[in-house]
Amino acid sequence: MTVHPQGWRKASYSSRETACVEIGRIGNGAAVRDTKDRSAGYFTTTGTQWAAFIDAVKNERFE
């Protein structure tokens, strides 16, 4: 069964920018795609993976 992401959105900080990513809901996780090339598809994460990523961003572990 193929599940399609719903509710695609990008960060409000992106405003009119086009060089960013969009996030969609998919089951208990998230789907991520590039706004510049939506036709290239998306990748998905589990809810646990997504929560770990968000935590790392919030705690500046990528800086």
Rank of each mutant, 00 (worst) to 15 (best):
M1Y: 04
M1N: 11
T2I: 11
T2W: 07
V3W: 02
V3F: 07
V3N: 13
V3S: 13
H4A: 06
H4L: 15
P5L: 00
Q6D: 11
Q6L: 14
Q6P: 05
G7V: 05
G7F: 05
W8P: 12
W8G: 10
R9M: 07
R9S: 12
R9Y: 06
K10D: 03
K10H: 12
A11F: 04
A11I: 00
A11G: 15
S12E: 12
S12D: 07
S12Q: 08
S12F: 04
S14R: 05
S14C: 14
S14V: 05
R16L: 14
R16Y: 14
R16V: 13
R16T: 14
E17K: 08
T18S: 12
T18V: 10
A19K: 13
A19E: 15
A19F: 14
A19M: 10
C20W: 12
C20Q: 09
V21Y: 06
V21T: 08
V21A: 08
E22P: 09
E22M: 06
E22I: 10
E22S: 13
I23T: 14
I23C: 11
G24I: 00
G24Y: 00
G24M: 02
G24K: 01
R25S: 13
I26H: 03
I26D: 00
G27I: 02
N28Q: 11
G29V: 02
G29W: 00
G29M: 02
G29K: 07
A30P: 05
A30L: 06
A30R: 12
A30H: 06
A31V: 08
V32F: 11
R33N: 11
R33W: 12
D34T: 10
D34I: 04
D34S: 09
T35W: 09
T35F: 08
T35I: 04
K36M: 11
K36W: 07
K36Y: 07
K36G: 01
D37Y: 10
R38K: 15
R38P: 00
R38Q: 14
R38L: 07
S39M: 02
S39I: 04
A40Y: 03
G41F: 03
G41I: 04
Y42F: 15
Y42W: 15
F43Y: 07
F43R: 05
F43E: 05
F43S: 04
F43N: 10
T44D: 02
T44G: 03
T44A: 02
T44H: 00
T45D: 01
T45G: 04
T45C: 11
T46E: 01
T46P: 06
G47E: 05
G47N: 03
G47H: 09
G47F: 05
T48M: 06
T48C: 05
T48R: 11
T48L: 09
T48G: 13
Q49N: 09
Q49S: 10
W50Y: 09
W50A: 07
A51R: 13
A51C: 03
A51Q: 14
A52D: 05
A52C: 06
I54V: 06
I54A: 12
D55M: 01
A56C: 04
A56Q: 06
V57Y: 02
K58P: 03
K58L: 09
K58F: 01
K58M: 07
K58W: 02
N59R: 13
E60V: 11
E60R: 14
F62A: 13
F62G: 07
F62P: 00
F62W: 09
F62M: 11
E63C: 02
